[in-house]
Design a protein around this nucleic acid. Structure first.
Lengths: 202, 202
DNA sequence: ACCTGAACACCGTTCAAGT
DNA sequence: ACCTGAACACCGTTCAAGT
């Protein structure tokens, strides 16, 4: 067979197929991708740095949906909040991919630029240099923690034995639809209030 | 060979071996466990509900180190903070296991009892029933998000190209040793302050 | 009940061979 | 440069056979 006139594969199509598989079944394998693209498994390795490379591509693809526009316009607190919500929404669009993606932070240039912007925003707002990264990392933790929560199946909160933990059962019963959203917004509000205090107290 | 007079395997030893493997190499496989215990791979399946069952056992084992004693004595805010720190410390003791464990929440009875206690504590403190679970879930997100951060390799924050993101490079340079701790404590302080406000405003 | 040996389907990865 | 076919080591899981 040999080399085709026009390449059968490229990184974008491999990434798209991997994301489709993850959306459908929560996982992907290299042979599965090859099968969907009508190609041999080995061919995939000519375009991609192994399975881990595909995971990194997924990370970048999902992160590409983050809208960093809010970071360009103050005030810093609403800008950071909008960024965090968009960051979280990008993950929420592919809940089954979350466990695969949250194991290590995104380090694509495009995302690093967003961190760069955030640093500038916080410095301009008056945060002392040593406080800037903790403030950013704390927000990232918030986003990733609540992303994992979104990925957790709903039935995780359906108790198998309600009598063992009656108060927990009651509290779960009083829980509305937007369970994950409520927890995220609660934590985000606390985070922002605390950062504002850091600024005025410091 | 057949059945030995005294069983060669049990769940505890399988769990211990799996945790050792994860601590050492960040992963485990059923054949690896069997090899370490001087037994055939198939034997492991007589004690454990497949590979996923072993992961669940790891979750329980790691969570067993959480000290829930703080939940028995008020005030609610310091009690919740102590619980969260202990929860996080339990994960921190096995950083390489974190990606494996954070993909779904612990649902072992022992941990559910802790949630039960937390619900009681918050109700007694005066939180309205519908607020209780969001408050707890937000704290859990905080813990898991910062646990993932602890699991991230330190070199994740060593930029390959400092010139592309100069401000980020500066901020990272000003970061002390306890990077992960600082971010966690920042988020925790904000969380607690916000919960206190919910109580007085509500 | 618990261990073995063998089997099955699947995986990630490499590599020489072809164009 | 890019695809194939074949190979390798490894994996999770099942199951009949033994005590």
């Amino acid at each position: 067979m040999g080399r085709p006139r026009t390449p059968l594969l490229d990184r974008a199509r491999i990434t798209t197929t991997a994301l489709e598989l993850v959306d459908e079944q929560g996982e992907f394998s290299v042979p599965q991708i090859a099968r969907r693209l009508g190609v041999q498994t080995a061919s995939v390795y000519h375009h991609v740095d192994g399975r881990d490379g595909i995971v990194e591509l997924l990370r970048e693809r999902v992160a590409a949906a983050i809208d960093s526009g809010s970071l360009d316009h103050g005030p810093w607190d609403t800008a950071m909040a909008a960024w965090a919500r968009s960051y979280r929404a990008a993950f929420a669009a592919h809940p089954r991919a979350i466990p695969l993606l949250t194991t290590s932070p995104v380090r694509a240039p495009k995302v690093l630029e967003q961190y760069e912007k955030a640093v500038g925003l916080l410095l301009a707002a008056g945060f002392p240099l040593p406080d800037v990264m903790p403030v950013i990392i704390a927000l990232e933790n918030l986003v990733l923690g609540s992303a994992l929560d979104m990925a957790a199946p709903e039935r995780m909160w359906e108790l198998s034995d309600e009598t063992a933990t009656p108060q927990l059962a009651r509290a779960l019963g009083a829980l509305g639809e937007g369970r994950a959203d409520a927890a995220f917004e609660l934590a985000l509000a606390g985070y922002l209030a605390h950062c504002r205090e850091m600024l005025t107290d410091g």
